[in-house]
Simulated assay, not measured.
Amino acid sequence: MDPPPTGTTQTGTRTRPGVEVSDFDRPRLPRHVRLAFCRTRRRRILLHPETVVVLNGSGGAVIELCDGRHTVTEIVTELGARYQAVSEDEVRQFLTQLVSRRWLELTDG
C-alpha cells in the first residue's frame, strides 16, 4: 500500500511533496534551512545544505513571514498591507513549491 500523499512527522509538521497548503497552516523554515542576507548579491538567500537559493524581493518577503506563528491567511493579509497587489494563489503556489522541496515545513494551525 502506498503512503498517503501528505506526510506528518512526529512534531506535527508536513514536508513531503504533494502537501496542500491550507489557510490555517503555519509555515516555517526547517532546522536545516536558514534565511540570510547576501551582501554581494544584495538579496535574501535561503541556505540549505549544499544549496544556495537567491530570492527576489517578494520571495524574501514571503519567507520572512514564515516563522511558524503566522498562518497562510495572515501572511497573505500582511503582504496585502505592504504591497498593493498580492495574488493569494501565487503565494500559495510559492509556499507549496518550497514545501515540496523541503525548504519549508507546515505546522497545523
Rank of each mutant, 00 (worst) to 15 (best):
A85K: 13
T13V: 06
W103A: 02
R92L: 14
R39M: 11
R101F: 02
L104C: 09
M1L: 08
D23R: 15
V91K: 05
V21G: 08
D67V: 06
V19N: 09
V72T: 09
Q93M: 13
D67Q: 06
T71R: 12
T73I: 06
F37C: 14
E78D: 12
L46G: 11
R92H: 02
L35T: 06
G60R: 12
G7H: 03
L46N: 05
S58N: 10
L47N: 11
P27E: 11
D25K: 08
T51V: 14
T96S: 15
F37G: 14
E50N: 15
R16D: 13
V53W: 05
Y83P: 00
L95E: 08
R14Q: 01
V91A: 10
P4W: 01
G59W: 00
G12F: 01
R26M: 05
G59I: 02
W103L: 07
R31Y: 04
T40P: 00
R31W: 00
V52L: 08
R101M: 05
R14C: 07
T107F: 01
R26G: 08
T9W: 03
R41W: 03
V54T: 15
F94I: 03
P4C: 03
V53Y: 03
E64V: 00
Q10T: 11
L79G: 10
P30W: 00
D25G: 09
V19F: 02
F24S: 15
S100E: 09
T13Y: 02
L98T: 01
T73G: 03
A61G: 08
T6A: 08
D108K: 08
V54L: 15
P30Y: 04
V54E: 14
P5G: 04
T73L: 12
R43K: 14
R82I: 09
L47T: 10
H48Q: 13
Q93V: 15
V52I: 03
D23K: 13
T107Q: 13
I45Y: 00
D2A: 13
R31H: 12
P17W: 01
A81D: 14
R14S: 09
Q97T: 14
L65V: 05
L29E: 09
T6C: 07
L46D: 12
L106H: 05
S22Q: 12
G57T: 03
I63L: 15
P3M: 04
W103P: 01
A61I: 02
E105H: 04
D67L: 07
T8N: 10
I45W: 01
G80I: 00
T8E: 14
T15F: 07
D23G: 12
E74V: 00
Q84M: 09
W103N: 03
T8H: 10
E88F: 03
F94Q: 13
D25I: 05
G7V: 02
D108L: 11
L106V: 03
Q93E: 15
S87E: 07
G12H: 01
M1Y: 10
L98I: 00
R92E: 09
V86N: 08
G7Q: 06
M1N: 13
T15H: 04
V99A: 08
F94S: 13
L55E: 07
L35A: 05
T9M: 07
F94Y: 14
L46H: 10
F94R: 14
F94G: 13
L55G: 09
T73N: 11
G18D: 01
V76T: 04
L35H: 00
F37A: 14
T51N: 10
R69C: 07
G18E: 04
S87K: 04
T77I: 06
R31K: 12
L79C: 05
S22N: 13
P17M: 03
L79N: 05
W103D: 01
